[in-house]
Computed example of a mutant assay.
Amino acid sequence: MAACRHFSGDRPLTGTGQAIRAQLIVPEQQELFDYWRSKANDGRYPTRADIQPAELRRLLPSLSILEVVEGDAPRLKVRLAGTRLRDYLGVEITGHHLDEYDLGDQTEYWDAAYREVILGGRPAQGVVPLTPWQQPNIFQFWLRLPLVNGEGRIVMVLGHDAFMQSEKAHALAGRANLHIA
């Protein structure tokens, strides 16, 4: 990933926001997305300081916050990973960089997802099986939302992950006309 994208205060959240919101099939992700949008000021994405954990108490086990660490090759460091992530991934990822984990054939998928959020400056969502974590019958419905600093530069990513058994995941994805990767 290259340097973070900088946004001006006149960047609208409307078009992309409406498309992403319409695709969210997990109610908790719809709730988080609506909360994130409510924290946007004057068309700018929210900052980390705008996100109040006490207001998201029910969602905390499924939330993550990743910091964009600048350098020769920018990396993503997990600042917060809810307990549900640890339960499904089988490892505590808080304090670690995402590139420390072997994601196998999903590496390019996740790189593209984070590029969409950080470099593309847009929320992103999707669904993948947990095959890199030896749980191929569990599907991860994910949502990633950009957070900016005071200058409008994307410096963090707010995430929500819902995990479902394959039967339920296929039923939900089919209802929303989604293709599971």
Score class of each variant (00 low, 15 high):
Y109K: 10
L80W: 07
I93E: 02
Y114G: 03
T83Q: 10
H97M: 03
Y114V: 04
A73N: 11
G95H: 15
H96L: 05
V91H: 06
R84G: 08
D105E: 11
D102P: 09
G71T: 10
T107M: 01
G71H: 12
E92C: 14
L80H: 09
P74E: 03
D111F: 08
G90N: 05
A81V: 07
R84C: 13
W110S: 06
L85S: 09
T94I: 12
Y88K: 09
L103I: 05
Y88V: 09
Q106H: 02
G90H: 05
T107H: 06
Y101N: 05
L85N: 07
E108A: 07
Y114T: 03
L98D: 10
G82V: 12
G90W: 01
Q106C: 00
G82W: 05
A112R: 12
Q106F: 06
G104Q: 04
K77G: 00
D99E: 12
L103E: 14
L76H: 06
Q106S: 00
V91N: 07
G90E: 04
L80T: 08
L89F: 12
T94V: 12
V91S: 02
R86G: 10
D105M: 09
Y101G: 05
T83V: 05
Y101Q: 10
L89Y: 09
Y109R: 12
L89P: 14
A113E: 02
V91R: 09
D111H: 11
V78K: 01
T107Q: 07
R86K: 15
I93Y: 01
V78E: 00
